[in-house]
Design a protein around this nucleic acid. Sequence first.
DNA 1: GCTCCTCACGAAACAAACTTGCAACTCGCG
DNA 2: CGCGAGTTGCAAGTTTGTTTCGTGAGGAGC
Lengths: 166, 166
Amino acid sequence: MAKTNPEIALDSFDLAILTILQNDNATPQRMIGEAVNLSAPAVQRRIKRMEQAGVIQANCAIVDPAKVGQPITIFVEVEVISETAELIDAAKAEFSATPEVQQCYYVTGEADFILVIVAATMADYEALTRRLFFGNSNVKKFRTFFAMDRVKVGLRVPLGDKARAS
Amino acid sequence: MAKTNPEIALDSFDLAILTILQNDNATPQRMIGEAVNLSAPAVQRRIKRMEQAGVIQANCAIVDPAKVGQPITIFVEVEVISETAELIDAAKAEFSATPEVQQCYYVTGEADFILVIVAATMADYEALTRRLFFGNSNVKKFRTFFAMDRVKVGLRVPLGDKARAS
DNA sequence: GCTCCTCACGAAACAAACTTGCAACTCGCG
DNA sequence: CGCGAGTTGCAAGTTTGTTTCGTGAGGAGC
């Protein structure tokens, strides 16, 4: 796993570039350069620098789950019985290794984990619960929320309006 | 807004391509072609077709929130008082228009909305709650979960192992 | 059984984008 | 005031994406 490099300073050019790339990373560097008033090579060097520093974690295509036969999105709050480091790490590892688990967060509050799961059918989800939750003796309880509407989905990070044009 | 076109059929080539693009959409088409045993133009045509059909919703860079000064990720379960269509739509619109709200789902169960929020500081989050929740007379209650660890984050859709090599 | 039509593929030519080397510039510091 | 680190823009070279064209594999109809 590519370890994330030391912190780097980001100026308003970088933030403006990131804002564009978060929308569409297929934007030509020349166009980005025009938008932020920089030459294409300068844009390219900044992008590479941010990728190496881990500011840009990945470049990926966003697929509509419903269009590929996975129309069900589910939230699950998981509460565990014993919160030792070993058991928590084991749970993290298992959730991470499960492809249907799109997102997994270890949280404070009334639950310990929050999962976002995509599934093709209710039967698939039920089978998954049997494996992940009923099959795990450390899971005390879990609560399920079915998504009726994916109102807003994304991983866009708000960067303020530090964009610069001059 | 680009309306999503009629359904299209996806074969195992398409799924294999999607699997690659979900990992890294900067992969050259030639390399994708080698991986799935297709020529580069064929790959390119399939990608364009899936983009037009809405199977590929976006191509974007994933930014590490912590590296850009937004180290706090928060889950919020929101419960509303009145669930009329107008009020629900209004809530959806407001959440969608808020940049700090990374994700918003309208769900069944003990909550009505689940939000994923990124914030720079606790004070920022508190200000946001005042605006979004206390400032909205239709919000009955909301529960907050702070993420201690973003164990797994992504929007990758499991496509099974329909990938083909021959 | 034959033909026509449609569709997707691959090879090659073409256009566009990315990448690198180099000289000049700015800024901070001794 | 001069030096060094860092960044920029320009231009050339390379890789990649895109288009065009011809070919071959199914299906429908005669």
